[in-house]
Design a protein around this nucleic acid. Structure first.
Lengths: 211, 211, 211, 211
DNA sequence: TATGAATGAGTGTTCATTCAT
DNA sequence: GATGAATGAACACTCATTCAT
């Protein structure tokens, strides 16, 4: 049935795992977590059902691993920007760009992830187990925390108004996500990044009203 | 089991429908769409299973109707503000307040709704049927359109910068929703509304950088 | 598919439950608990799968209920004998007869039950849940307790030697079960009962050896 | 991972086989046949999965071999007693003692075995294949046959009543097994053996009733 | 001989929906 | 209109066994 590949044992083995992850990406993206079936994934991965369970404890863990592995490079890149010595506003704009890029590249999956953690806040709507959901949420929070840190840096440095850094971080985050999910990101990603930064920094009002 | 009420047939019948809707609100809010079961709803509604299907084609339709009926008053109120003669920025702040209020009052349900339409954009993650999801999305779009109209009015009047009104409307909307879902809304709802408006109007930067 | 029966609603409904129990008896007897499939049961019961789960929480519970309902009359009969005023040895012989009869009538099922509680003692070999197994075991113990009580009565009255009543009860019980499961019970059930009683009462030795 | 041992190929190989058998004993005893997994066995045996299948055709065969090898010394000992020139009742008591000892030593495994052959009679409840079960059953029968032979000897010699030797053998056997499985065997194994023998020989009744 | 990655058959359970009364 | 018994499609997961190296 499946075509044997002329590669070293090690590669074949890595390949199986990767084949499954790749197939999972496609299927989860298309169907979401709940509606994605393992059967569909293995059909696409050209693999036996047992193999999936050799590599991943269960469907949830497969999903989690997928997200984790796809996110890693993005998170590193983000960290790097924070540690750089660019001015705060520049940092923020670069981060927005990274976000957009990452969300564009992995939109399918992240849409689903957001779906499964609605509000990346509380409740229990999703099909994911409490435990798994918490892990995802912590990931998210960690990412947003980074935004928050930079905002706080900006406030300390006096570049940013005295505002609630956490709320602002969430606000910025939500706007980025919304732009991506609404397909509002132009071909020129930098343009969109700049646009978001501009509104976020200076607002939409033409002039400040006398209070 | 259930106590029959001594009311006119018509009233009982209306009552049944409402009982179901009320129960559905509670259960959907608690469990989300997928995990809410009709059994749980009828238990709470103190009614028979068949009765639900007499009034609502299916679970989806029940959910849709529920959302629709709960949203109606909010949408009217919103329309009214638009038609008022307040200055644009004032209108916007009032609208933000209305949004917050509405989302706070119906948070449980709307959280679920957002969950089921993730991205109020595209695909098919949710348990909802394509058709039903589109209806919900149209509702959402209609609501956001109203924000957009006011923004456009602001641009026309010269109070708001020349910007992409649609994107801005979505951005504003996403921020509002995020604040609610993150439980960032203070007891003093007006304060939060003002805060959102302030950032949205004037940005977070202390001073405009020389470009 | 299924033939509708011309009976009152109440009867049909009782019938469904009973049909399932009857089918379950056959399938469990033939295949044992683990190898019996719900699919096979519903095929025989001429019923839908969901129906089984309307009446019984799960496969285990179905099995438990089946055993329970089949055992009830036997247990009553046993109790009655205990409370009678026959001489102890007579009581015991009657009880042996009841046991034989019951085990012959429900042999298929009880074989399985014993299987699932191996040793009606300890461990965890069976497919049954800890909780369910304990329930079954308690049933068994209760039944054996009754034997024990009569033995103790015999000791008190001086008809039976001073011996360990519990051990003796278990011994008697195990012999009865073994006779049934080895198909050693003659057509004339009373003969077998008498034979067991005889060995149990007077032993197999021709004469007591001088110690 | 596993430490390779510096022994002759032949020894390693024998060792592997034994390691597997030892591990199998532990796991089967703890979990029973069905719930014991090959994975668990190889983990404990510190060996590869394929290796198990090099030495044993399948899980069943592994189990069978295990039982067979553990039983061999016991069966020899039993034979020896039969061939001895002790009086029949003495032989029987010694045999009871051997049984108790053997069942105590290998209780874990034998419990499982009995479980898998329930009734060491008929049907097909266990996970074991028909063929394999028959082999086990023959083993059992052979062992019980030995008891039967001695009983027949006793009858011939006039020490034992004219009774059905086969049934009596089974009865005795079942009592022994029951005592073990119910943990009724005292520290002093001989006491229990004597107790069983006493009841079996002379019964529990104080005096023979006038018929 | 030893290994372990790959395999896939097999099954209990949930729950929205129907329809006869 | 109100009811609830009956239904069955859909799905994740386990584990003995194989076979290429």
């Amino acid at each position: 049935m499946r075509t044997t590949q002329a590669v070293s044992l090690n590669d074949v083995s890595r390949s199986k795992r990767q084949q499954i992850l790749d197939a999972a990406y496609v299927v989860f993206s298309r169907k979401g977590f709940h509606r994605a079936t393992v059967d569909e994934i293995i059909a696409l991965a050209d693999t036996g059902k047992g193999t999936v369970y050799n590599y991943f404890t269960n469907k949830e863990k497969l999903f989690y691993t997928l997200v984790k592995e796809r996110s890693a490079p993005f998170e590193s890149a983000l960290q790097e920007v924070v540690r750089s010595h660019d001015p705060v506003l520049t940092k923020l704009e670069i981060m927005i760009r990274l976000f957009l890029q990452f969300y564009l590249d992995n939109g399918g999956l992240l849409r689903v992830l957001m779906h499964e953690m609605r509000g990346f806040g509380s409740e229990q709507y999703s099909t994911l187990s409490q435990e798994q959901r918490e892990k995802h949420q912590n990931s998210f929070r960690a990412t947003i925390d980074i935004l928050q840190q930079v905002l706080e840096e900006g406030i300390r440095v006096g570049v940013i108004k005295e505002c609630d850094a956490q709320k602002s971080a969430y606000a910025l985050f939500s706007v980025i996500v919304t732009m991506v999910f609404q397909n509002f990101v132009e071909e020129n990603l930098e343009a969109t990044a700049h646009l978001i930064a501009d509104v976020f920094f200076y607002g939409i009002a033409k002039e400040r009203l006398a209070k």
